[in-house]
Design a protein around this nucleic acid. Structure first.
Length: 251
DNA sequence: AAAAGATTCAACCGCGATCCG
DNA sequence: GCGGATCGCGGTTGAATCTTT
């Protein structure tokens, strides 16, 4: 015996919503406020629709302050970052992007960002003096970096198993100077550990347990130009999109 | 100009989680 | 504590639109 359907599909309209239906639904919700029971809404509002369909239409399209299309580069980075660290948890990812819905983010990932990654998912290379665009947090001096409260929030609160985050292999090792707590020894295989050392590769957000860093530690790493590489709390982050573009940018 | 192929994205589906009597 | 009802999510579909041939 299968699962009972949420509504009688022979008695509800399906497919694209008409402008009239949109107005009816919007007017009803604006008049009566937050919906406590979506299943009974269509009947009350006079819509020949399934309650789930109404909910979806409201959340993904009619709700105020919804943004469609035109994802910014920062949004791309946030999506990439969160996807690589927690997988396809679209609602969580969308919650860090004001005005974006999980459906929008999912579609954007499946149609554009994923392809972008596949096209460039080869060896990651950097060179000396290449300025990684990093996000940072905690005790770090973030003056030279792009910061994001959204990401800081995500980093502190998430504790997901690290997976899929590619290691950045540095074709020319760089000398970095760490400041802050020496306990921020989280980068593997030649990563930043103590003051002034050569770094051959960067493994973001990996500590000895293979988990995301918690809140604590903190420190800053600079390359030999004084550019802050960006230890983040107890972790490290580099800008995925910029890294993907390294070979194009550097040649 | 037309056909074919590719892309986009709104909407649907079904399942696990949560709520509530 | 149990079980049915509902919610919320991620995966998938398919019609509409765009691009290429």
């Amino acid at each position: 015996m299968g699962r009972a359907p949420c509504c009688d599909k022979t008695k509800v309209k399906r497919g694209t919503w008409s402008p009239e239906e949109d107005i009816t639904l919007k007017n009803y919700i604006e008049k009566f406020g937050t919906v406590s029971n979506w299943i009974s809404l269509p009947q009350k509002a006079g819509l020949m629709r399934c309650g789930k369909s109404c909910r979806l239409r409201w959340l993904n399209y009619l709700r105020p302050n919804i943004k469609h299309g035109g994802f910014t580069e920062e949004e791309d980075n946030i999506i990439l970052f969160l996807y690589h660290n927690m997988g396809s948890r679209w609602s969580v990812i969308a919650s860090h992007l004001p005005g974006r819905t999980d459906n929008d983010v999912k579609n954007y990932w499946n149609t554009k960002l994923k392809k972008k990654l596949l096209l460039k998912n080869t060896t990651f290379k950097s060179t000396t003096n290449t300025k990684l665009n990093t996000y940072c947090h905690g005790n770090s001096d973030c003056s030279n970096t792009s910061t994001s409260g959204v990401l800081q929030h995500a980093m502190i609160n998430a504790n997901y198993q690290q997976n899929l985050v590619p290691e950045v292999v540095l074709s020319d090792p760089i000398q970095v100077q760490e400041s802050g707590s020496p306990s921020t020894n989280i980068c593997s295989s030649g990563g930043v550990s103590t003051s002034s050392q050569e770094v051959t590769s960067l493994s973001p957000f990996e500590n000895k347990d293979g988990l995301w860093p918690g809140n604590g530690g903190g420190g800053a790493a600079q390359d030999d130009d004084g550019f802050l590489m960006g230890l983040v709390g107890s972790g490290f982050y580099y800008d995925l999109l910029n890294d993907f573009d390294f070979e194009e940018k550097i040649g």
